[in-house]
Amino acid sequence: MKNESSKNQMKDSLEILSKIRRAEIAEDVFEKISDKIRDRQNNRIQPIWIRVAAAAFIGLLLMEQYIILKPQAQIASNPIELLLPVSTNSLYHE
């Protein structure tokens, strides 16, 4: 009996839901959408600037790699470096 009544109640609930009327959207929504689209386009970074930033970053990485892996001979051949005193880091001379 209880089962039957809850089934009826369920049927009623679904019927009530199907009676919800269609609503009309406000007229000014299209303008708001256009504004949002315009804002997004203005805030978007141009692809050319993304490429420039990427190229600069890769350039920096390559330069760092070059400095780190520079051959010792090349360093020694630098005349300024030859003038610098070389520390042996030893405290006592034997």
Binding site: I25, A26, V29, K32, I33, K36, I37, R40
Partner: peptide
């Protein structure tokens, strides 16, 4: 309304 705007964007 907010959802409608975002959907159309």
């Amino acid at each position: 309304e907010e959802i409608t705007q975002d959907v159309f964007v």
